[in-house]
Nucleic acid binder design. Structure first.
Lengths: 244, 244
DNA sequence: CGCAAGGTTGAATGATCTCAACGTTTGTGG
DNA sequence: CCACAAACGTTGAGATCATTCAACCTTGCG
């Protein structure tokens, strides 16, 4: 159920103003953004864009989580991106969108009609510059995910996923904590993100529980009991980018 | 063996001028590019950048092929990008590079020192605009590759790889033809690109030969005998973007 | 209460990997 | 010009990890 008539938030009060596509703008540039932006909300599981559809607007995620997916003809499905607050949806300069975008939770988007946004990109250098950064950051993230999909074991995939979700929640939440984290996806959705089956996801989560690395309060709420062992299980070398 | 003293090509004579990061520039902007660009060449297998190294310059591929790779600690390796002429290397706005870049063949790069290039990005809107397009196109390609890595079978992976290489060569070569194509990678490198082992790559190539879909003149030179069946074998639905 | 959706667990299967032997090509020095 | 080694590629047999198929469990809700 898409709703457009959402109370207008001032850019100055916007929770994502420091990381979104607008983050480099000056006050007069914000005035221009204020005049063209609209908010849309979607309920969990609502489609936001369908693959091949004409791309009428681009957007930043303000609140909630969206998933990007591509399917093969026979129904095999691969999630190719999970978008958290401040992440950008859409491809200015391209009329069609290449994948399905779906609300993974209730979600609020800050939307710009595509054509006015393309004009902004030409006329407001701070937008184009930030857009380059955002696209290149997404590209780096996509490449990290390629390593996961191509070379990691099922156990490493699950550990990496849990660590990544926790890191994004630490950034978004006011009070970061490892004691009350939320899995934004169903088992079958996690499977599509990691290139596994839902049964394998379930088994690997059970193993992490059994080993005392994580604890589940219910299906979606969990705690990380042993961050060090979780990180060891990811197969990555760096520190995972966590607040110590 | 890196060489810097390569004859300077005028931008006006550059083979990649219509697709590279400079493709939207006007003549006065080209003058500025001419003054700061340098050419570098590398022999096949030479490292271009190492992961973690300070990124001194960014570059466009003029001629040849480069590979981007990431490794896990235990040596598992995943190629995360294969760069053909006009593709861009580097992440302006970031001091370190996140992966290893290696010459897959003898290669010529058109290089810009990072700091002058960052200034260009701010001062020459045509550069920033084209950079957005390039980054977003790369992102789309990375997401297609995620589908391959996460959901395709070994046979589909190989077929997709061959189709992709042929498509890029059709773009680059003066006389596009399916009769004299070149595999730019060794079996082990193809394996790292597709998330397979080199033995599986070899077996699947043998199957395509046996089925009369492709023919090998030698290890690196091949013909596509049956484009339709090759495309069917990729698992993709679209037309593959080929000149009919 | 009873059903539907989501989740867990088990057993058997199978695609890909691992390990190993053998082939082929290329370049080099005698 | 040949012999040889090194690098790359192919093929086979057995092992393994993830999948498939199936049964059953849990939870929320009309």
């Amino acid at each position: 159920m898409q709703k457009i008539d959402v109370p207008h938030i001032l850019c100055a009060d916007c929770p994502i103003q420091h990381r979104a596509v607008c983050s480099r703008c000056e006050s007069d540039e914000f005035d221009r953004l204020e005049s063209i932006k609209t908010y849309r909300t979607f309920a969990a599981n609502d489609p936001i864009f369908w693959r091949g559809e004409e791309l009428k607007y681009v957007a930043s995620v303000v609140k909630g989580v969206a998933k990007l997916e591509k399917s093969l003809e026979d129904g095999r499905n691969q999630m190719v991106g999970l978008l958290f607050p401040s992440d950008f949806i859409g491809h200015p300069k391209r009329r069609q969108i290449e994948f399905d975008v779906t609300a993974a939770s209730d979600i609020t988007l800050c939307c710009f009609e595509r054509e006015p946004f393309e004009r902004l990109l030409v006329e407001v250098p701070h937008i184009a510059q930030r857009m380059v950064e955002i696209a290149l950051d997404e590209l780096d993230a996509a490449r990290d995910w390629m390593v996961l999909l191509g070379r990691k074991t099922a156990a490493e995939k699950i550990a990496t996923f849990i660590e990544m979700v926790a890191r994004r929640q630490q950034i978004d939440e006011a009070s970061p904590s490892l004691n009350n984290l939320v899995l934004p996806l169903l088992r079958s959705e996690i499977a599509d993100y990691l290139g596994l089956t839902l049964e394998t996801v379930s088994r690997q989560l059970s193993t992490l529980k059994r080993d005392g690395v994580v604890e589940f309060i219910d299906k979606r709420h969990y705690r990380i009991l042993d961050m060090a062992r979780l990180h060891d299980a990811t197969g990555d070398d760096s520190d995972g980018g966590f607040i110590p």
